[in-house]
Design a protein around this nucleic acid. Structure first.
Lengths: 329, 329
DNA sequence: CTGAAAGCGCTTACAG
DNA sequence: CTGAAAGCGCTTACAG
């Protein structure tokens, strides 16, 4: 490893001077500057960010904690983050909890130990211990997708999106609308989307059967199974079904098609998330695009504002979603 | 920031001793150890990895350079990498070239300046400047998906996979097989997959028309357009088409369906990549699963071997692919 | 079993 | 315009 010391010696100047030309600050005569630059060029010297950040207390890296690394949501989020961070010279240190809650705390500490300049947490289920850990961190921090009190976050409007979809169905004349959700511990996908559905139904005085409201998990098979439960157990068969993710919706579609029914004539289907799948399934799926890249960009902006000490008062941002109407309704 | 110095003072020991209990090496009496541990607990002290790595020359971070951040390939690759690196206590520093070749060199330098313990490069197009930069790096290094001479790499067997698909078509009785590829500058997807197709055709003495061999780019629309070119310009219409990515294949399928033809009765279609889409389009798409997670794991293993100074002789690994036969052939 | 001191590669007042 | 020296938070011979 070649260091600043060696550059200084070769150029017959002090390390101070080399540092100055490296960072382009302070006075350096053109002559000396050229000499130093030449040596740097010749040697291929690259300054150590590590040593630098030990002094300056800035690392130019942002820690990102993801619940799952290889989902469309995660990769779209990271894309949005990277777009703005890269532009400002920040790198992303990636961390993946694989949905194990204790890992969130573990990684929070790890990121702190690495002195990242800020942290983005894409959380699913928030508990008290986590909130305390975050508050103890005293580091620029933004969460995405879940509201944590007193902490900046960028949110999807889960409630309204879900409501919009149900209202669209109602407008199109559907009256018996079933629902496939997930556990309500997940406040965004589980609780809020269900609340939107329930409220829309209620506001329109539509009927509902217990078995119309199913709770699945995040995959296609679960959608298939939930739909089968709905069809087997309901007295009045529903003429529409809203699923809280596209995968669940696609599973439901599979069941419906296998049952010899037509979509949307016999049963309309809607999903949420605007996965790429939703475009190419047949019939193409009506869904919600939560503009996740945009969420990523907003989160990055918010974090940068905190890092630069500005505007830390803005706590919540909701990103506008887009309802994508296709052939399944 | 609370530091080792403060812990030492509070526990009335030297920093040396604190360091010893932190790293669990060297002799420390139980008594002193307990005292130190207690202070650490009380203060919530987290040692600075930065300072540590400045001394030890190890950062426990791996740099990853991706051509595109939000594709299925990238996220499956990162998943595989993360599986093995996380287990060994390594974090991933993510870097995204957005397919801009100069960025590869820029990020290589950046990762070096951060003293990552090793680098994984998922390359698309390799040029001489890049190779020189890599060789100058003198750092553990593995490339994925593209062969770079004298550098460890994990490869897909693009040539054979493509050949297998064509042979499958031939076995099923198809005789007029068209091809949608991409630019041959991309050695893996462009050149090798085309070579596999061409050789399979040749070995079976099958006919081929110039316009049967199209060059597209990496998206669905391009597949649609390429297919239209094939159908419009060919004298003998093909009865099968191989596309080098699932997206291209799906675009081709769209065109075929819109033309009122049936898949696979009129024209069989195969893609490559086993995207999630391929399962859910209709008819479901026959494709190649390159086991990208496995590629990631292998690459991580190879890199770790280099980091630990073992087995740096093994240069090339090919990961077994799986041909997934579905309804489109 | 414990500690004083040097050193990792930088930056930054301070002095000239 | 330039440099000597201190310091960032750790670890690691070395000595006792």
């Amino acid at each position: 490893m070649i260091t600043i010391k060696e550059i200084a010696e070769r150029a017959s100047v002090s390390r101070t001077t080399v540092s100055r030309v490296l960072n382009n600050n302070g006075y350096v005569s053109d002559d000396v500057k050229k000499r130093v630059l030449k040596v740097i060029e010749e040697t291929g010297y690259i300054p150590s960010e590590n040593a630098k950040s030990l002094r300056t207390k800035k690392t130019k890296v942002i820690g990102v904690i993801l619940p799952k690394i290889s989902t469309e949501t995660s990769s779209r989020l990271v894309k949005g983050l990277d777009e703005v961070f890269a532009k400002k010279g920040y790198q992303i240190l990636l961390t993946n909890t694989n949905l194990v809650p204790e890992k969130e705390i573990e990684y929070l500490r790890l990121l702190k130990s690495r002195h990242v300049d800020g942290i983005i947490l894409s959380a699913t289920i928030i508990n008290q211990a986590l909130i305390e850990e975050i508050n103890g961190l005293k580091s620029p921090f933004v969460t995405v997708g879940q509201q944590v009190s007193e902490i900046s976050n960028v949110l999807f409007d889960d409630y309204q999106a879900s409501k919009d979809l149900v209202n669209l169905m109602i407008k199109k004349g559907y009256k018996h609308i079933a629902f496939i959700g997930v556990d309500e511990e997940d406040r965004s996908v589980g609780y809020l989307r269900k609340a939107g559905y329930l409220d829309a139904i209620k506001e329109n005085n539509l009927p509902i059967e217990d078995c119309w409201v199913q709770k699945g998990i995040f995959d296609v098979d679960s959608g298939y199974y939930s739909m089968s439960e709905i069809m087997k157990n309901s007295k009045q068969k529903p003429d529409a079904v809203l699923a809280v993710t596209d995968r669940l919706a696609i599973g439901a579609m599979q069941y419906i098609k296998e049952a010899g029914l037509s979509i949307p004539d016999d049963i309309a289907v809607a999903g949420m998330g605007a996965s790429e799948l939703s475009r190419f399934v047949s019939p193409s799926l009506t869904t919600i695009d939560f503009s996740i890249e945009e969420v990523g960009r907003e989160a990055a902006d918010l974090l940068l504002e905190q890092i630069n000490g500005r505007n830390s008062y803005e706590k919540n941002r909701k990103v506008k979603y887009r309802l994508i109407e296709r052939s399944s309704i």
